[in-house]
Each structure stands twice: as C-alpha cells, then as structure tokens.
Design a protein around this nucleic acid. Structure first.
Length: 566
RNA sequence: UGUCCGAUGGUGUAACUGGCAACACGUCUGAUUUUGGUUCAGAAGAGUCCAGGUUCGAGCCCUGGUCGGACAACCA
C-alpha cells in the first residue's frame, strides 16, 4: 500500500480529525506495549457500499496509524435478515480494499452465551425485567420525544420471577413476541433509548451460524457494546445516528463491565450525490430489478465499484480525503471520479478503441498492405513499454472526430484539413461519401503523407489535432457498456414532496455498445484488467466476458474540457 | 413544548493552549503535449449562520436566537 498518497505523515504536525485527536489524547496514558483496538462491525444483511468503505478505512486506518489492531465483527443478531452470502461478500470486499483482520474474525453470535449471562447479571441486579406486553403495547406506552412513557405493569416483577421467565424464554416455552426482556431505566427520560429499551426478544428463527440453538436473540444495543467490551475494543466508532444510543451504551457497561471499557464515538456518514446509500434502498433496487444485482456497476457498492474498474487505492485515497467530521455532508461524485482517474492514469495501459465508428479510407495507401506500428503502452510509465498496432488502408475513426461544418476551435478532421492519426501518419481529408437518402456520412476518404510516419522527421510537422483509430481488418469486435449516474437528481432520497427515490432513476444510466472495434492487442485481457481507451476514458474487462466475447465497462471518462465548451 | 448533535468559498475538510482564514475537488486563464488526457504556472471565489458579550485581538470563549440533522422497530 505504499502507493497510497500519504498525506498523513504523523512525524510532522498534520492536522488531525477529531477522532485522531481523541486517540492521540488517549494513547498518552497507555502503557508501552498497549495500543488501540478498533472494530468494523457490519451486519451481514446486505452488501457493503462506499460509505462502509470510509468506515473500514477509518477503523483499519486508525489501527494501522497508531500501531493497534482492528477486528472484523459481524453484528449478526437478527437472523431474519442475515445470510452467509453477505458474510462472504463483506469479507471479500474488505480484503480487496487491502485490509487484514488476521485471525480476528468475530461474530456477535459467538458471544450469545456470554451475552445471555450478562442479561442474567442485569436481572439479578434489578436492572432488567420481563415484560409480557405486546409489541403494540410497548410501543404505545413509550410516549413521544416530548411526552414521557408509561411504566409497564410488569416492571416491578421480582428478580426470581424474571430469572425464571427469562430462562423459559430461552428454552422456547413462549411464542414469538409474547415476552420481552427490557432494561429498567427511566420511562420518562427525554432520551427515547433510555425508556426501558428492549434487550432480548423471542424469535424462533434459525440463525445462519448458530442454527436452532437459540430462540431468543439480543438487540443491537445489548449486543454491540457488550461485544466491544468482550473484545477489549478501545474506540468504538460508529455513525451519527447512534449518538442518542451512547447513554444506553454507557449505562449497560456501567452495570456489566469491570475494568477497562470501550467508548463510543460518532462521525457523520458519507453521502454521495446522484446516488442512494441506504441498504434498504439498495436492496430495493436489486429486488425490483432496477439494476442487475448488487454488483451492477452503477451501484455504489464496493463490489459494483470493483466491477466497474475502481481500484482499492483510489477508494482508500478518496476515503482519506473526504475527512471525518460530525456535520452532514454530500460529497460530489466528481471527487470520487478524480480519485479513480488519478490512479488509473498511472496504471492503466493505453489502447485504441472506436466507440462510434465511421469508415475512413486512405486512398493513396497500398491496398492490402498492413504495417505494424509501435505504440507506447503508458506515457506515465515507460516501463510498460510498447505494443504493435496494425495499420492499413481502411480504418475506423470516431464519428465525432469529423465535422463538415466545424465550430471555430474544432481541431479534429474537417474537409480539406489535416489531422494526425496517433502513432501513424498525418492524413488529409479529400472527400466525404454520404448515403444519398439519409445524408449520413458513410465514408471519409483521405490521403496520407508517407513522410509523416511517427518517429520520422517528417512527423514533426504541426497539425491541429491527433485522433485515434483502429484498422478495420485487424480489429476485434467487443461489447462496451457505458455507465452514467444512476439518478438524475443530486439527492433522490431526500425529497419531501412525496416522490419516491426511484422516480429519479436515470433512464440512460446504461448504454450498451455492440461491435465496438478495438485494436487486436486487447486479446488476452483478463477480467478486471484496466485500460485507457485513448481519448475516451478508462475501461475494465467485465468478468462476464469470454474469450470470444470481450465486454468492457467504462469506469469513467477522461476529463474533457472540449465537451464542456460545447 | 423534549433531548442530543451540527453550522467555515460551489463541494469536502483545516486553522495546535484566542493572533489576522489554509488545503483538496470543482471553475476560469495560460504554457507544454502525437490523448482537447497528464503535467506545469496562475486567477477568481468565504471574512467563518445571526445578534450581543469577554478580550488589545474571536472561526475558536460566553449568552441568546436562527437554520439543518438525529431520536418514538421486539432493525442495525
């Protein structure tokens, strides 16, 4: 990971985000051999997205920076929504991003026995009770943020009875929803989470890891903090919506923990414009077939970004640069795109492909002759060397690279004008052949100057533009998928006018191009290999490709100041 | 009429114990360029939500507002 841009050199006084400041404050008091322990705690009920990537980079990055460790812990306390498929995808994504949790792969479900014991401890201390009210009653008596709740009639149940009932809950004696273990705190607290929150509920559902061993499962609030405590987490970092849970997090630990305890800190989650980030909405897009699965390259999931051609380095750089703070934010996708271009520019080999081809014939070039031209693989990295590109009398060029009536600053091919064919010759447009019926240009006829072959002194001649091309006879036909933003609105999910986020889906977010000619050196490309198609953008070989059908995903276009002028 | 959190160029973050607003993206010039890419040089753009106060001095501290967000699943 040496190629991560290191703008976080701790030897000089770089500015710290507020969490780093907290860590630096805390480690001052640590003994020599001790450091921080963080954790990334995903719930395996969906795929990870770019927002999770930020959290992963934060938690693992903090550990890395301060000589600590970061655990991977699955928060698997709700078997109804959790699946092994998600566990696997999450592990793959974290690994791909370049982080290693070594042997510290934990599950809240590993702690079900201890959590159960903690619950008994709480009951014995008189801090928890079994409530026989229905979910509706519990909800109705909770009050509102401005009105206090009403105490449950079962609140005063004796400890012995609570203990007995809790055990029988565990043994499966009661139906789902008939009983609930609640903390006994304060039904009139202004903090809703302190109004006797649920700790354990009955759910006769088999769990993806513990099977049918349990029919009661701990709630998030009871599982999370206690798991942090069990693992010896020092800094438990989560997003802002858990801020109101912190008093409960601390309350539980107050009554359970002995010795060193974890502390929770909250930061503002990452938001990106022109997309949605909640798992619920992403799941809706997947289930409703608005996209082709979790890894559809238009999705903001890590697996989708991987398939689209993003690199781990680019995502890590991005995550680092967006910063960590507590105020709400919406990051411009352009910022993300800048991060990929920056990395891809350095590592992607260049190839020529013509996305919207028009035939070009070089009238004075010998028929049937094929030359092999040398082309640099990557001007940003000389070690990538050269490849051979076949050149012949009939080529494809980009339709938009020719104009009969060009605007002032157009410096591509025009009637009677000259242009350089990259790596090849300077050509001059002599004639345009059109379909007499439609007026569509079907062929551009040019002459070439044999003295202007790249590398020859004649090639020094100044021409106004250089365009890319592909020799028709030697070209490989491929499929190219052009992606655009999934939504036409910056904040599709933030509407208060009753519209649904799906109302803002971009109907042109995917455009499939068939039979795109690419230079033959593309043969042998492997899934996820990244290329820059000269002047067009960065592309990545889709894993759905086969040896006789290559499919490319456009990761991102090149910066295009010309397109902006138009 | 509750509690908690937040507010700095278009966007995102900085500004160490108060010392005269910085960096990145974006935008706009210009140079270089066999990618209208990259690179390089430069510019514009905020006076820090508002009103008071403390201070020689406030984005940082205090008071009161305003605006935004979170919280009323047996979800996490």
């Amino acid at each position: 990971m040496a190629d991560i841009v290191d703008n976080k050199d701790r030897t000089d006084k770089k500015s710290l985000n507020f969490i780093e400041s907290i860590v630096e404050r805390d480690i001052k008091d640590y003994p020599e051999n001790k450091s921080i322990l963080t954790r990334f705690p995903p719930e395996p009920n969906g795929y990870l997205h770019i927002g999770h990537a930020k959290s992963i980079c934060l938690n693992f990055g903090l550990a890395e920076a301060y000589g600590g460790k970061c655990n991977l812990r699955f928060d698997d306390t709700n078997p109804e929504t959790e699946e092994t498929e998600y566990v696997d995808s999450i592990k793959e994504d974290i690994r791909w991003l370049g982080f290693d949790w070594e042997n510290r792969e934990y599950y809240a479900s590993d702690y079900f026995d201890r959590l159960y014991d903690f619950a008994i401890l709480l009951i014995k201390k008189g801090f928890a009770y079994i409530d026989d009210q229905s979910a509706e009653e519990v909800s109705a008596t909770r009050g509102t943020p401005t009105k206090p709740g009403i105490e449950s009639p079962y609140r005063g149940r004796p400890v012995g009875e609570n203990l007995d009932l809790f055990e029988r809950m565990k043994n499966g004696e009661f139906p789902n929803g008939s009983k609930l273990l609640r903390a006994k705190i304060d039904m009139s607290s202004p903090n809703m989470w302190l109004r006797d929150p649920a700790l354990y509920r009955i759910k006769k559902v088999s769990h993806h890891r513990t099977g049918d061993a349990w029919c009661i499962y701990p709630m998030y609030d009871f599982a999370h903090g206690q798991s942090d405590y069990i693992e010896g987490i020092t800094h438990s970092i989560c997003t802002l919506e858990f801020e109101v849970h912190r008093p409960l997090y601390d309350w539980l630990l107050d009554h359970i923990a002995e010795g060193p305890r974890p502390h929770q800190y909250e930061f503002a989650r990452l938001n990106l414009n022109y997309t949605v980030m909640s798992k619920r909405r992403l799941l809706e897009l997947v289930n409703g077939k608005y996209v082709n699965g979790w890894d559809d390259p238009r999705m903001p999931t890590i697996s989708a970004m991987r398939r689209r051609g993003y690199t781990p380095v680019s995502i890590r750089n991005f995550s680092e640069r967006v910063g960590v703070a507590k105020r709400d934010n919406i990051i411009d996708v352009a910022f993300l795109e800048h991060a990929v271009r920056e990395d891809l520019n350095k590592i992607a080999q260049r190839r020529m492909a013509v996305l919207d081809p028009v035939k070009l014939v070089i009238v004075n070039y010998t028929e049937g002759k094929v030359e092999s031209l040398k082309a640099r693989n990557n001007p940003e990295n000389e070690e990538d060397g050269f490849r051979e590109v076949p050149f012949g009398r009939e080529l494809y060029i980009e339709r938009e690279d020719f104009m009969e009536d060009p605007p002032k600053k157009f410096f591509r091919l025009v009637p009677g004008g000259e242009v350089r064919l990259k790596y090849a010759y300077i050509i001059k447009c002599e004639e345009v052949v059109k379909n007499p019926e439609t007026g569509e240009i079907i062929e551009i006829r040019c002459s070439y100057d044999p003295d202007t072959k790249s590398g020859m002194t004649g090639s020094q001649r100044k021409v106004k533009g250089t365009i890319h091309w592909v020799s028709i006879d030697q070209s490989i036909k491929t499929e190219v998928r052009l992606y655009d933003r999934l939504f036409i609105d910056e904040d599709p999910a933030g509407k208060k006018d009753g519209t649904d986020f799906k109302d803002y889906l971009n109907p042109n977010s995917l455009k499939i191009l068939k039979d795109v000619p690419v230079e033959p050196s593309i043969i042998g490309a492997k899934p996820l290999n990244k290329f820059q198609f000269e002047r067009k953008g960065y592309f990545c070989l889709d894993p759905d490709s086969s040896s006789d059908k290559l499919i490319f995903n456009r990761t991102v276009t090149l910066r295009d100041t010309w397109a902006k002028k138009k």
